[in-house]
Amino acid sequence: MLWNEPNNMSHWDAQLDPDWAIYAKMTRMAGEAIRAEAPSITRVLGGISPIDPEFIQNMARRGTLEAVDAVAIHGFPLDWNHWQLDEWPDKIASVANVTTHPVWVSEVGVSTFGAEEVQEFGLRRTAELILNKAPRVHWYSLYDLPRAWPATTRHREAEGSSYYRHFYMGLLREDGTPKRALRHFTDYTPALGICQWFHFEDHRLDDAVQWFRKLGVRKVRTGLSWADSLRPGAEAWLDRLVRALDPFDVTLTYCFTPDSCGVRADHTSPPQRIEDYAEFCARMTRRYA
């Protein structure tokens, strides 16, 4: 997957790329580089949030969709989106109507910010609504985000309750104990996958793999951070991450600009040289695919 939520300011700085021309060209170049390394690998446009058919049409006009094999969407109607849960089939159709590419749901989830019963209901109803509507569905996520780690958003605590919901998206609490919804998850695997982001040298990796096996998960989505790839010890960590996930059908998301490579020193910034991102994607594909 080429980037994460490129139409979300928390993940791509649209002030530096207001019409997404840089993202479109960068993604097209990266898609071509991946195809040169591994022709059979499925290349996915970065999952969009909000769900915006016009963004997909913009990518089509710029030729970006010629360099990917699928597009993806993210939705959280019980937490952040301004639409209702039962609109999921219409949201998928709105994107399917503007492209011939398969439409993946690469992140969908419900927080326990208000009550665990909300997530329990949301999991079951979401699965009923979309598992037969998309070829890939990844539930976000297995673990709650530890409170000591910042959530990846623009304004952090200034976002109020919207920010704190990020810390309650897991089927497991921060300490690894199960929430109510977990007992239903095996009703939907292996069709339903999981999206779990792992931080650099994440202490939860081995336990997560055990939970994936226990839950019957076959499809896993995670990230390979371009920014992390420049850190000391990065090669050993990325090797360990990919090796641990080798038994699963994995979607690797290539994202996060290193400070030293960005137009602005931030992970959301377009790179100074889009060739650097394409080279990173090619290098990771060559090493792991």
Rank of each mutant, 00 (worst) to 15 (best):
I56Y: 03
D52R: 05
E201Y: 05
P271M: 15
R240Q: 09
G47H: 09
R43S: 01
G233T: 04
V242Y: 04
R147H: 10
K91S: 00
W12I: 11
R231Q: 15
G75W: 04
T153Q: 11
P271A: 07
G109C: 00
T64G: 06
P89H: 07
L182A: 04
A93N: 08
L131N: 05
Y254T: 12
H267Y: 15
A227F: 13
A115P: 06
G47L: 10
E235A: 14
T253A: 05
Y140C: 08
A60I: 10
A265R: 06
S225Y: 02
P77K: 10
E87F: 14
E116L: 01
D259T: 15
S106I: 05
F185I: 05
F248M: 07
A30K: 07
A38K: 11
D228I: 14
A151W: 00
A208R: 00
T222R: 02
A21T: 12
E107N: 04
R173I: 06
W149T: 11
E66G: 12
R165Q: 00
I92C: 09
N58K: 13
D175V: 04
M284V: 03
P89S: 08
E32T: 12
L131M: 07
T99V: 03
E279T: 15
G223C: 14
D187A: 10
E107I: 08
E116R: 06
I73S: 07
L131D: 01
Q84N: 09
D207I: 13
P6H: 02
L192W: 01
P270T: 06
A148Y: 11
R283W: 11
W139A: 04
Q272T: 13
H11T: 11
E128W: 06
W226G: 07
F167T: 12
R264M: 09
Q119T: 01
R165N: 02
P178V: 06
E159V: 03
G223D: 15
Q84D: 13
T189E: 05
Q57H: 07
W149F: 12
V98T: 01
E128G: 14
R287W: 03
V105A: 08
W237N: 01
G122K: 03
Q210T: 12
L145M: 08
L142C: 01
